[in-house]
Amino acid sequence: MEMLVRAFVLGGLICVIGQLLMDLTPFHITPAHILVGYVTTGVVLSALGLYQPLVDWGGAGATVPLSGFGHSLAQGAIRGVESKGLLGALGGGIEATSVGVAAAIVFGLVAATFFQPKA
């Protein structure tokens, strides 16, 4: 139960940062910029060892935002290096996130095929 509350709070706060970036900075920030920014920030934080504590504390609150995707990429790359050396640095990130990416491609394709945009 406590974990649910933490997930809610942490997840909410991570989203709030994005909202503040969109509303309070003079730049024209699109959803694509937000998503790219979160993934790369997630990778960097994770590499510095700052993201794992968030995951430990807030669970899905840290893994569901796209920065969690970055975390998986970074941890994958690090584990890849540990098991396969230099080659692992190239493949590790994608390996670790392959399920999510494949799911996005398949579900995306299926949804786009069967639904019509409504506006």
Binding site: M22, T30, P31, P117, K118, A119
Partner: peptide, 14 residues
């Protein structure tokens, strides 16, 4: 116009 000038219509942009 939206899809030409801005975003796809179903994108959840504010």
């Amino acid at each position: 116009a939206e899809r030409q000038f801005r975003y796809p219509t179903e994108l959840g942009a504010q």
